[in-house]
Amino acid sequence: MTALLRAAAGLIIWAIVFASLYALQGLACALGWDKWQIAEASLARLVLLAVYTSGIGVLALLCWRYRPRVSRRQFLDRLAFAGAAAGLFSLIYTGLPVVAASICR
C-alpha cells in the first residue's frame, strides 16, 4: 500500500498546495491583504508567491528523492518518479497565474 502512496505523493502535494493557494486567495481578499503594498507587490501576492515557490521547492525535492537510479528500476519506483514529476509540473503550470493575475477582482 505504501508503494501506491509513494506513487501518489507528488500529486497529493500538488492537491494540497493548489487548494491552499485557492483558499489563501479567498482569505487574502476577505482580509484586504491586496491593499497592503510592500515594495512593488501587495501583501496578498507576496504570501501567494511564497506558498507557490515553497510548494515548487518541496516537489522538486521529492522528484530528486524519487529520481531514477540503477537500484530503482522497478515499475512502482518509476511510477513514483512520474507522479512526483507530474505534481511538480502541474504546480508550476496551475500556479503560474499568481505572478500576474488580478487577485481580488
Binding site: 497529493i12 492537491a15 493548489f18 497565474p97 477582482r105
Partner: peptide, 28 residues
C-alpha cells in the same frame, strides 16, 4: 490516469466562471 484522478479535482470552478469570482481564482 493517476494524474487525471488528481487533476480532475482541481477544475470544479470552471463551472462557475460567471459567478463573479476574482480573476486569479478563475486563472487557477
Amino acid at each position: 490516469i493517476l494524474a487525471l484522478g488528481f487533476l480532475s479535482f482541481g477544475l470544479w470552478v470552471h463551472h462557475m466562471f460567471t459567478v463573479g469570482i476574482p480573476h486569479l481564482a478563475l486563472a487557477f
